[in-house]
Amino acid sequence: MTTRTPLTRARLATVGAELADEVGFEHVTASEVARRCGVRVASLYSHVRDADDLRALVCLLALDELADRASAAVAGRAGAEALAALAGAYRDYARAHPGRYAAMRHRLDPATAAASAGPRHADLTRAALRGYGLDADGETHAVRLFGGLVHGFVTLELAGAFDHSDPSPEVSWEWSLTALDATLTGWSTR
């Protein structure tokens, strides 16, 4: 006799995350998650409100996973070393889990976002930036600059945008992080 794994929000998040990594976050559907769980679609709606709620579960799982990895990466580091470790954690996660990484951009309602690991990501970035002596506004701009650089680079890299030219993406990655450190080191806050 086969026992079925109970259907829970956590299981739906895991199955949705695995599906996202296999076929892309945009293809995470209630019907495919239900099929993989061996249940009917209607059974999912005892645990999620709708397809958007299912996608939010995947987003929350990814935010949690990456926050744990990023926290471990920056522990005991400061300045350029902390910045590079944090950026590397994001890049490594995106390469290993492209669907989950894409899921982290899913728009959450304000209450869910506030209770998610999203603020932890911002706090980790602020901690990595602390050695640059930025005021509160400058720090906010630097968090956004860091996010834009890392997300933009990783998104282009995952899309294959750097596959057909030299130097290698690794060289450009290192150059970008060095340039970011130089920018933040010389940043004069207003």
Results as ranks from 00 to 15, higher is better:
Leu180Cys: 07
Ala113Trp: 11
Gly76Ser: 09
Glu81Asp: 15
Asp109Gly: 13
Glu174Gly: 00
Asp123Gln: 13
Ala34Ile: 04
Val33Ser: 02
Pro110Trp: 08
Arg36Ile: 08
Arg120Thr: 11
Leu149Val: 15
Ala17Ser: 09
Glu22Ser: 07
Ala75Ser: 14
Leu108Asn: 10
Thr8Glu: 09
Ala30Ser: 12
Asp109Gln: 12
Glu81Val: 08
Thr155Cys: 10
Trp175Asp: 03
Ala75Glu: 15
Thr14Val: 05
Leu108Lys: 09
Arg36Trp: 08
Val15Met: 06
Tyr101Glu: 03
Pro169Asn: 01
Ala73Gly: 09
Glu170Gly: 06
Thr125Val: 12
Asp137Val: 13
Leu44Val: 06
Thr29His: 03
Ala117Trp: 00
Ala127His: 11
Ala72Val: 13
Ser46Trp: 10
Thr2Pro: 12
Leu19Phe: 03
Gly24Ala: 05
Glu26Val: 13
Val171Asp: 00
Ser116Gly: 04
Ala80Phe: 05
Ser43Gln: 10
Leu129Pro: 00
Ala20Gln: 01
Leu124Arg: 00
Arg107Val: 15
Gly133Asp: 08
Val41Met: 11
Leu180Ile: 09
Gly147Ser: 15
Gly160Leu: 14
Ala42Lys: 13
Asp123His: 07
Leu149Pro: 03
Ala75Tyr: 02
Gly88Glu: 13
Leu7Met: 03
Glu32Ala: 06
Val33Thr: 03
His47Gln: 09
Glu170Asp: 15
Ala85Ile: 11
Thr29Tyr: 01
Arg130Val: 05
Pro6Phe: 09
Gly76Pro: 07
Val39Phe: 08
Thr14Trp: 05
His106Lys: 14
Ala122Thr: 14
Gly152Arg: 10
Arg35Pro: 01
Val154Glu: 09
Ser71Leu: 12
Leu86His: 03
Leu158Ile: 07
Ala78Trp: 10
Leu145Pro: 02
Ala136Asp: 12
His151Cys: 12
Glu139Thr: 11
Leu86Ala: 04
Arg107Tyr: 05
Ala51Ser: 11
Leu158Asn: 08
Val41Phe: 02
Gly38Ala: 07
Arg95Trp: 08
Ser176Arg: 00
Ser46Ile: 06
Thr5Pro: 07
His164Phe: 14
Arg105Val: 08
Gly186Met: 13
Glu26Leu: 09
Leu83Asn: 01
Gly99Trp: 10
Leu66Phe: 03
Gly38Met: 10
Thr178Val: 15
Leu61Gly: 01
Val74Ile: 15
Asp181Thr: 05
Ala85Met: 12
Ala56Gln: 05
Ala10Gly: 00
Ala72Asp: 15
Val48Glu: 00
Pro169Trp: 00
Val150Lys: 15
Ala115Lys: 13
Tyr132Ser: 03
Asp64Cys: 01
Arg35Glu: 10
Asp123Lys: 04
His164Asp: 13
Leu180Met: 14
